[in-house]
Design a protein around this nucleic acid. Structure first.
Ligand code: ZN
Ligand code: ZN
Ligand code: ZN
Ligand code: ZN
Lengths: 134, 134
DNA sequence: TAACAAACGTTATATTATAACAAATTAAGG
DNA sequence: CCTTAATTTGTTATAATATAACGTTTGTTA
């Protein structure tokens, strides 16, 4: 009876805490530098933790940036339907929590007959701050 | 009066022709191997061509795969609003052309007040073929 | 406690992408 | 045509991102 792991392991906790404390998405090697004092020495240790954290819905990968951000949607069990807004100027990234959007996309079906359980959406534009400064 | 380039350069044409002939998305180094007989020797030559082709809307990058696919929407001048369906099993990728979807997303605005001119959406699931074989 | 799965540690290496610089080509204006 | 600027090219080196392979340790379950 294999069952989904509940508890995070030591390395997973360390990596998660760094990501949660960060103001924005972190890159894997930046995480590595941040956790070396806590005993994590190699990239692979970070990548393994990242993989598990993503599976657990604790973090998401921003694909267009190869960076990782903590989930703010009360730990999306979802984790499969993600949407982000990304500022092209200051690189600010925010997870979009919008039930209409997620409903719309979860129910989307094109003529291919393919039904999707998973998607990732990345919006780009200028955030409020950066819009003013222009 | 700088103006958007109309004509593709030699290397851009070579790279584009490879991508257009391919059945699915190609990775940069796979493109490189494919064009070496045509005189392109270095990764940078490929990446430079890719960059221009993306700007021109001739190709798109599949972010979750670090791969490049030819645009099928009559050369999206759009190129800024992209959606793809990706099969998790056979890796088949198809650009989604659906005006309702693009209208919905182009008009989407969340409570952040941010308005988006650009997005990339990647759907994941099983294609028809792979669904049958399961 | 035996058996298995998951996590860990470590070294090496694969893959993806860009920096820096100089030469060649192309486009536009006088 | 000549000049100038912009773009494209060629080349070498290197940065940044990610995984393979192996053996050990730890935790769970029967
Ligand atoms: Zn989330
Ligand atoms: Zn901003
Ligand atoms: Zn397109
Ligand atoms: Zn398939």
């Amino acid at each position: 009876m294999t069952q989904k792991q509940e508890q995070l392991s030591k390395n997973q906790q360390i990596v998660l805490s760094i990501i949660e404390r960060a103001k924005g998405p972190l890159k894997a090697y930046s995480i590595l530098y941040n956790v070396q004092k806590r005993g994590i020495k190699a990239p692979l240790q970070v990548y393994r933790a990242l993989e598990k954290l993503i599976e657990a819905g604790k973090i998401h990968k921003i694909e267009s940036k190869n960076a990782f951000i903590a989930c703010k949607n009360s730990d999306c069990e979802i984790s499969k339907t993600t949407a982000f807004s990304i500022c092209n100027n200051c690189e600010h990234v925010k997870e979009i929590k919008n039930s209409k959007l997620s409903k719309y996309l979860s129910n989307f079906a094109d003529n291919s007959g393919m039904k999707y359980k998973k998607y990732n959406l990345e919006f780009f534009g200028l955030c409020k701050n950066c819009k003013l400064k222009q």
